[in-house]
Design a protein around this nucleic acid. Sequence first.
DNA 1: CGACTTATTCCGGGCCGTAAAATAGCGGGG
DNA 2: CCCCGCTATTTTACGGCCCGGAATAAGTCG
Lengths: 417, 417
Amino acid sequence: MARPSTTTVRDLRKNNRSRALWQVFLNGPLTRQEVGTVAGLSPATVSNLVAALVAEGVVVEVGLEDSNGGRPRGLLQVNPGYGYVIGVDVGETAFLVELFDFGLNLRAQHASVTDMSVLDPEDAVSHIVEGIESVIAEAGVEPASILGVGVAVPGLVEHRGDAVVHGQSVGWHAVPLEAMLRDRTDLPILVDNGAKTLGQAERWFGAARGTDNAVIVLLGTGVGTCIVSNGEVYRGATSSAGEWGHTTVCVGGRTCRCGADGCLEAYVGAGAIAARYEQLKRRRVTISPSELESRVASIIAARDSDRAAAQVIDETITYLGAGIADLVNLFNPERVVVGGWLGRALGDDLLPRIREAAGRRALHLPFSRVEIVTADLGQDAVALGGATLPIARLLTAGAVAPRHPEKPRRVRASTPG
Amino acid sequence: MARPSTTTVRDLRKNNRSRALWQVFLNGPLTRQEVGTVAGLSPATVSNLVAALVAEGVVVEVGLEDSNGGRPRGLLQVNPGYGYVIGVDVGETAFLVELFDFGLNLRAQHASVTDMSVLDPEDAVSHIVEGIESVIAEAGVEPASILGVGVAVPGLVEHRGDAVVHGQSVGWHAVPLEAMLRDRTDLPILVDNGAKTLGQAERWFGAARGTDNAVIVLLGTGVGTCIVSNGEVYRGATSSAGEWGHTTVCVGGRTCRCGADGCLEAYVGAGAIAARYEQLKRRRVTISPSELESRVASIIAARDSDRAAAQVIDETITYLGAGIADLVNLFNPERVVVGGWLGRALGDDLLPRIREAAGRRALHLPFSRVEIVTADLGQDAVALGGATLPIARLLTAGAVAPRHPEKPRRVRASTPG
DNA sequence: CGACTTATTCCGGGCCGTAAAATAGCGGGG
DNA sequence: CCCCGCTATTTTACGGCCCGGAATAAGTCG
């Protein structure tokens, strides 16, 4: 949420505008009174701000709430037609591009696959740009009405000037993705780490909704987190905070693909689960990235019948519990959300056991204050999270620059003179 | 640093006052122009705010800076005589109470020892109150001029209403320390975790100065951290964030005094170091808390001559490196400060090896962005940090309520009419 | 039509930034 | 030795903007 540092009396209005707008955006239809309560503003100010937002087409009044004897309360909501945003999920094996309206309703999507194990940045940019053009065409919206594009990538993103991506798993070293995209499109570009966008999506619309201190865990081929602290995504000094996968859970343990020993990912990553299973079966199989998901799913499914599967799952739960306990101790969240395709696959049945494993290791007090739950959102949560990036920027700025709203300005009901 | 959420035009002034005051407090003598620059205020506003602060005795003008041809710049500093604060360090074996003036210059101190292994809360309160009375008498200051007392305790502190302390290592379960102290004294009481106060002290005056994202590590009998994020101490949902000692670095490893296996503290805590050494020597000795410090020091000192000592130190460095690497990955700080008595003892010579051990496990990018250094402040850093608590509260509030400054109000030079 | 609740308008007190004026030292010339 | 002009800093005056409280308008229901 916006937490600006105000100095002048004009910033004051911008901030209050931003606060009101955030509330209306996130907490759905709200009456003016409710906006005043949650944003800490007087009725007069709310009225004033809302009038401006409605006149600019950012907010619309949708219906009225039943009154008990008095004037009915008008319900305010963000105007979906105010503009559009695009979210891009750059995965290790696939691209997903989605276009949403300002209410984050899906309007168009475009998926493409790459079977290369190493992703060429130029190729990736082409995939992205192609996807963007495709969804704009499919949705039939004016390019000028696109508020921005949020690109989620698997890797660390540094924001010193233009965003630069370091993605070990896809072989990217200091790829200036933002600049490369800006060369190919005029749309405003925002780049962030995929776990962080997933986390933001879960926080706005999913299982982390309503918490100001949460950890959203992304389990898949890689293992990452999004830390939400005081209502904002925790970034650290250079925006790479939350890298959980290569924390050490067992000094001297299994060797990780990063080279170190005993990383969490070497136990709970999808590749590690499959590899440990094959090792127990004394087989030497290399599993391609594309079939990893089904292989792991069948291991999870076979845990009651297959001894090796049971052992691998047991171990996975133990280590995952240790990793989650570390997060609970260090971050003291209200809620831990387990997501990612592997997280959802594990969480379906095994969440109680994961919870228990974490509880055995976490400190009693912070553990008693945390809920551990599975993620709500589906496959496209990362792309949705990407789409939240330009929206967050806009809301924090208070939606100042007038856009091209589909609904024209409302004329106020009062007499014109 | 203050990051308030403003709504009305009056809050605006309070916030700007607070910002200016924080700057003057932390960044020593500053000219009005510099205050304007760092706080983002116009010269006119600075002049206005400073005039009020000087009239109230919060800030004083100390000397002039040489001019290059024009009117010399006046240097502004906090008025040390504006009030006094008391910091209390409740250790596992000793109490330290210190009284400081508003410039945090030490004015009086009082130490007392307890040889109980389990600390009775009532006894602790008596020790604290006695210490407070002693330092007030020694310094010869008016009780009314005490701005507040900051109490640092070894354990988790929950701030829901009055502070409640959960200190496993001293056998405290939900001790309502704040309420207990309030029964015995009228001074404003603030309670926080000792690692967090140490961290705040290091950040204001020590090795973490000038960083907005730092991790201050406290190594001693216990193992804790203070996470500084965006210039503020990271607390999490219930203020217990940063509990590093019981994160798991080796699933299936040594049993910790908390009952779990493979906790970091079971390898790098002072007790663990001594115990591992005795174990290697095949001796069965119980070491009393009071002699622990010298025992560990002698192990560290003997590392070149004594094989067992060398092995214990090697292992300690490996595990400490793993723990620090985890912090670097998860929090992405600009700086890691290694403090506490054990941290200083290790850091003196072994810091390069610790750094190297961390570098082997941390992700390359965040590790390349972090400095690992030893703490600057001495034995009384925890008490000093306690004293910062009431000061921080005052600065954030903007020092509104007039106190009893020793220097009376300055009369402005202009004509009285 | 009156009661009641909600929304808007008006007004007053405050705040900050811009611009102009006052302040304060310095050095050189008379 | 004194005074004046130079320069840079600080203060003051003024205008524009903002929010909250109270009065006013708007909109339903009985």
